[in-house]
Each structure stands twice: as C-alpha cells, then as structure tokens.
Design a protein around this nucleic acid. Sequence first.
DNA 1: AGAAAACTTTGATGCAAATCAAATCAGGAC
DNA 2: GTCCTGATTTGATTTGCATCAAAGTTTTCT
Lengths: 244, 244
Amino acid sequence: MQPTLNTLEGLKVACSNCNLRELCMPTGFNQDEMQKLDEVVEKRRRVKQGEALFSSGETFTSLYAIRTGFFKTCVISEDGREQVTGFQMAGEIIGMDGIVSDHHNCSAVALEDAEVCVMPFSDIENLSRELPGLQRHVHKIMSREIVRENGVMMLLGNMRAEERLAAFLLNLVQRLHARGLSQSELVLRMTREEIGSYLGLKLETVSRAFSKFSEDGIIEVKQRYVKILAPDALKKIFNPQTYY
Amino acid sequence: MQPTLNTLEGLKVACSNCNLRELCMPTGFNQDEMQKLDEVVEKRRRVKQGEALFSSGETFTSLYAIRTGFFKTCVISEDGREQVTGFQMAGEIIGMDGIVSDHHNCSAVALEDAEVCVMPFSDIENLSRELPGLQRHVHKIMSREIVRENGVMMLLGNMRAEERLAAFLLNLVQRLHARGLSQSELVLRMTREEIGSYLGLKLETVSRAFSKFSEDGIIEVKQRYVKILAPDALKKIFNPQTYY
DNA sequence: AGAAAACTTTGATGCAAATCAAATCAGGAC
DNA sequence: GTCCTGATTTGATTTGCATCAAAGTTTTCT
C-alpha cells in the first residue's frame, strides 16, 4: 500500500488546518494571508527510516517542516568523522544550513518513518516580502537555531558527561511535552552512539551515564524507553549552582 | 580628543563608499538602491576594549556591522561558566542571536577598540521587503552563522587539542587574509584563556599546544604574535586523513 | 620608575572519558 | 521457532587533558 513515489501528490496540503501550525508557522494571519501561506507548501514528502531527506553537498532548494517523524542532522569531516548537530521533531524546520552556499552543509536522516512539508525557499522569500509576519518568522527560526547551537557549544565546551546527558534528556522531554506528550516518559528515537555523537561522548560513556542515573533512581531505563523519576535531580545535575 | 558620547553623530555614514562593503553588504545594487542601503545604518558606535557592545539579556534592537576592531561573543551559564561562541572581525555582522526572543542571548565584548555600524533590525526588515538582494543577504548571513556553528560543534565534539588549535589558527588567518592581511602572520587579539574557552580547552592546554607547534617548527610564537611557518603541516594536523 | 595585576609558560600529578574487550540483549530475516 | 545482526551494557585499562603549582613575562597603574 506504499506509494512508489516519495511524494504525496493529490494529498490536500494545508497549513491552515494543520495541528502543528502554531509550532512551525507564524500566527495572527487573516484568511487571505493563510491561504497564501498554504501555497508555500509545494507538496509533502515521505522519508523512510534511515533515508536522507537531504545530504551534505546537495543543491539547496527548500526548507522542510517536519509533520511526523524524527530526524538527526549531521556533518561529516573530510576524514570521515561524523558529528550529529541536532535532533528534530514534528513542527520543527530544517534545511537552513543550505541557504548560504546554495548547497546543504549537513545531512538530515530520518530516525523513524517521517513526513515533511516541502517549502521551496524562493517561494518563502517571495511571500515573506509580502507578509511581514512571515518574514519575521523566518528570521526568528534562523535566530533560534543560532541560539540553540550556542547552547550546544556550552554543553560541549564546558560540561561533563552526566551534565550533558541530563541537559539532553531535559531538552528532549521539554520539546515532547510542548507537543502534548508526557513530560516524564519518552522513547528515544536514536542510538547511544548518535546521542554520544551529539554530546561529544563515546557510546559507552552515554550508556554508563544512563546506568548511573538509573542506579541513583533519577530515571528508569529500558533500552530506548526512558522514564524520568526525579526531574529536579536531573536539573540539579545539569546546573548544580542553582541549588546551592 | 575622544568624544564623550560613544556615537559619532555628524560623521558621514555611507556603505556606498565603505571599503568593507563587499564583506558585509550584498553586491549588485544600482545607485538608488545603494542610497537606501546607506540609510539602514543609523549611526556608528565606538566600543572601547573590554566594553560590551551588547550583553546577554539586553533588549535586541539592531544588528551591528564591525567596521574596525575585534570582538568575542560569549554565553554564560547560570552557574557562571563562560563559553566563547565566536571571534568576529571587520566586515562581519553580529547580534542575530537576539532576533528570536527580542533579547540578546549572548554578549559581544570588544577585544580591542572598535567601531561598529548600528543597523536597526526593523529598518533592515522593512528595506529587505523592497530589495530582494538585501533579503537574500540577510538570510545568507544567518545561514552562514548556522554553518559556522556546525563546524565548531565538529571541533568540540570530535577533535583533539592540537587539531582544534590548528583549525582555529587556519580559520583566523584565512579570514584575515580575505581582509588584505598576511596569510602567514597574525597578532592574536584574545588571551589563551579565551582561545581555550572557544575551543573547549583550558588555557594551559592551549599554551602547550602552541609550544608544541613551535618546537615542531610549524609556527613561530612570541606571546600574541604568531607566524605560520608550515601551513601544510597545520592543515595536516587539522585533517590528517587528507594526506594519507 | 617601581609596584601590582594580568597573562603565559612549564612541570608534576590526578582524573574523566576513551579505548579495548567481551558478554548480553533485542529485533528482523527466513 | 532459530539464526544473525546490530545495539547495549559492563568491566579492565589507558590516555589526553584538567588541575595544581610555581616561575617568568608583559602590561597597567600610581
């Protein structure tokens, strides 16, 4: 029953009645403006687990709004070292790395079957000249990414293994909660190795930190399933000073 | 002879005859458009060494184009740990971290007496709705920052001390060269500690790596002065695989 | 100029995370 | 169901960088 194409033509695409609208689109538009916004989404595209939505070096054409599924973005150095630069979930926009050089600088790989809205960047630019709200939104999304990466730099430059993992778990669960999911339970979509790559750690170190948290009664772990039993303890590990 | 105000009113501000134009502004405008661009630069502002151009938490109003001088940007965690997120020089644009929340997320401190062009962001947004070339330029600048930070994540997550320092020196000298300066000699504007913060290392480790490069005849170091004697050796350290 | 403060270098030691290794576990193919 | 593959955990050991310490150098202040 799977379509042979990875695009879903014929499927009605409309931001105006998308339940993720407030996550990925600006608010405060009238009906006419909403309709124009809808037209920015050229089509949808399915990406199967393990497949790349785009790859480093490919020509940049579009930004992508994640409708369902979970992605990782990663850069690869010339000598083959992989660095996961982020994990993205429904409602988040990816692809902005490609704007500067018209070629993608990183790859986006689906960690579970996913569906994205394809938004040609030239259309976004055209429409955002008409709609200041959209223009501002595009700027905010890119600024948000810059700020997020600043935070990761702090993580990688200054924090110890357990602090990094605590920050990672708190961030994930906070974003999932914003999507109506539990703020204490989650199923990891990525391997220990991918977590390690993101956090600048080896997979064994990630595994040990999980075990440590589990022994200390802070979390319950069963493979990819994680339940946060003591969020305050996690926050304290992430940012010890706050509690002194 | 220093003005008491840190703005230089009365001074003719014009991108159109600024020698940094091709670094910080888009190209390909006609005279009429150039004039409009000139008007985006509200005024200039001097920042003395050690002073902040903006600080984390302050209300965001403007982007800044560096005319002269050298800056560091840094974030500080709640418990006081500082992470230098970048070093910026003439022709580069800073302040984009503030767009997402209307408040700056990091601080920009002058490492030497500096002068910047103040560009109110609302004016940039207004004009970039008129001038697609400017719009595209703003997008590229933000995308470039995202890509740069991806590279720093690779550095922090995957590389060893000497690789980090090699990458740092090569990057600095490449940017200075693009500004007409030597591609082999430079004077560092930052302390070992600031380099260390940027690279996720302690100042002693940075100092040792400098000494090691010096012993190996790759560079000549005298305090802040650095001369690159063997750029290929540096590149090889940064990216060993390329040479196998 | 002289004193103080800040920055840098170098050495000795300790430790957190990497590496190496092996056993266990989960999930998919057939 | 069983086999096979990839993911995870845990232990033993190593190592690169941090930390601690002290001396030397440069800059700033008075």
